[in-house]
């Protein structure tokens, strides 16, 4: 089975700080993986790297067949990231934001209504400017965009945060449906039990790497891809 995500000793930097410090992870297509770890462990960075938002400074990273060292743009239409920010425009209404996102991603506009209904964004809320929406409603909008775009790889960063009971159940359903339709899902979450029930497998992140079940993080592993003071990708 082909891998949706294959990272090998991947390094990603923010200035001089290593967000990912040689992370290796393989996720099969259709798998639902729970990423756990303390704050600042690198969960969000891993999700952002999977979305092609982080430059890979060392090692290899392949997502949905796209080598991120060579090209981080062409995969963008195939992934959906639910991040801390909503990526929405405050002045535009809920449905206008969704319409823009769909047009930008060249997804069929007909999916908009169903997606909004699914997330309970109906009636007056649809026409409300996002600036006037509550945090939970914005979160629902971001989820609605994801549902309507129907990506091959779902990257969910704390998907349950800030949602009411009913919406949290919807999130779980959405993840199951996505997996059922063959999509791959990475969920970063502190809600261990809820996520555990949802996912096929757990991966623990710490210090910008994946912790092996044995708990040993080899310290002296060569930082092979960094050469001459300038970082670059492995060609291999």
């Amino acid at each position: 089975m082909p891998h949706a995500v294959r990272f090998r000793e991947a390094v990603a930097l923010a200035g001089r700080f290593p967000l990912l410090s040689g992370l290796s992870l393989e996720v099969a297509e259709g798998e639902v993986v729970h990423l756990r770890g303390a704050n600042g462990a690198g969960k969000t960075s891993l999700l952002r790297a999977c979305a092609g938002l982080l430059a890979i400074a060392g090692g290899t990273a392949v997502v949905l067949g796209h080598d991120l060292c060579l090209d981080r743009q062409s995969l963008r239409r195939e992934v959906g990231l639910l991040g801390h920010a909503g990526f929405s425009y405050e002045e535009l209404s809920v449905e206008e934001n969704l319409a823009f996102a769909l047009r930008a991603a060249r997804a069929p506009a007909e999916r908009a209504d169903a997606a909004l209904e699914r997330l309970g964004l109906v009636g007056r809320v649809r026409k409300t400017a996002v600036g006037a929406c509550s945090a939970g409603q914005r979160r629902r909008l971001a989820l609605a965009v994801l549902v309507a775009r129907a990506p091959r790889l779902w990257l969910l960063d704390e998907p349950h945060a800030g949602l009411d009971h009913e919406a949290r159940a919807v999130v779980d359903e959405l993840v199951r449906e996505a997996a059922g339709s063959g999509a791959t899902v990475l969920v970063a979450s502190h809600e261990l039990e809820r996520a555990a029930a949802l996912c096929d497998r757990q991966v623990t992140i710490a210090g910008g790497r994946v912790l092996e079940p044995g708990g040993d993080a080899p310290l002296g592993a060569p930082i092979a891809a960094l050469a001459g003071g300038e970082v670059g990708c492995d060609v291999a």
Partner: peptide, 14 residues
Amino acid sequence: TADAGRDGLRLSGL
């Protein structure tokens, strides 16, 4: 840049 829109634009597929 208001709502991390830079990332939003990059992710949008535009």
